[in-house]
Nucleic acid binder design. Structure first.
Lengths: 147, 147
DNA sequence: TACTTCTTTATAATCATTATAATTAGTTTA
DNA sequence: TAAACTAATTATAATGATTATAAAGAAGTA
């Protein structure tokens, strides 16, 4: 399960010539075990006790390394902090407009949309990004209580 | 065409109690006539000659006003500047990984995906965001020339 | 062990966006 | 139309995420 995922990730890195440092190991491990798509700062804070001297720059640098190796996806939100998601199987995100919580859901890939887009625009398609927005059950409950 | 769109937009604003200032008029007009999803700064620079004293804050403030009125959509990209898109009919965007250019394309709404996401997660769905990424014909051509 | 190279750290810089306070300008009402 | 009220604009400073830089440290290699 998650142990194997970590091992695979480390192999992938090594094969592309990236050194495995304790910091990289810890960041990867935290990302894999994390359920909540952390920000760079959350990772930094979570590892503070184990790595009191680690710099925020190290977190950012390594997240970029992981992203370039295809191990990690960056979820961007304008002015707010990016969130980082360890890539496992394909999934999409649904995001609460009220509290910002992110939940995974699975759906077959949208190849048909990619094909149409490519056909209409002449682009060579690489990937797509899909997010659904709404109100999570918790916030929905609180809203109905308030009324 | 675009004249009517501007008029409609002004009516919408007035009806929701938003004052029509020369700056707002100009920003809206520029957004509607623009084909290229400008950033706040691009709008600011484009209107500099007509409004030499206008502040960047004014551009940001008004883009937020327009967004809250549903006239404008904000396209966010992590660290980079947001881009702003006057809402006409529903369309999606395809974005070049090389040069960043954004092209519109039309596709029926993804209600089926929204339904599934809602069913699986228990969220009440409000909206979704879909973007396709790839390489535009221009960049593709340059790449093949380089080889 | 010495050397080269990559990584980390600490810190400063950058840049988009927002907050603040003072001034100006729409809008309303007498 | 003019005073009065309120919202909008301006100029500027502040914020906060991310990146650049340079020096110090650690990993891999001969």
């Amino acid at each position: 399960m998650s142990g194997a995922m970590l091992k695979d990730a480390l192999v992938t890195l090594k094969e592309s010539g990236v050194r495995i440092t304790p910091q990289r190991h810890a960041i990867l491990e935290f990302l894999i075990s994390s359920e909540c798509h952390p920000t760079a700062d959350e990772i930094y804070k979570a590892l503070e006790s184990d790595f009191p001297n680690m710099s925020v720059a190290t977190v950012y640098n390594n997240l970029r390394v992981f992203r370039n190796s295809g191990l990690v996806k960056e979820l961007t939100y304008g002015d707010a902090s990016s969130r980082f998601d360890f890539v496992t199987h394909d999934h999409y995100h649904i995001i609460c407009d009220e509290c910002g919580s992110i939940v995974d859901f699975h759906h077959p890939g949208l190849e048909e949309v990619e094909r149409l887009a490519s056909h209409v625009t002449g682009f060579k398609v690489n990937s797509h990004r899909l997010e659904v927005y709404g109100v999570c059950p918790t916030c929905e409950k609180q809203a109905s209580k308030a009324n």
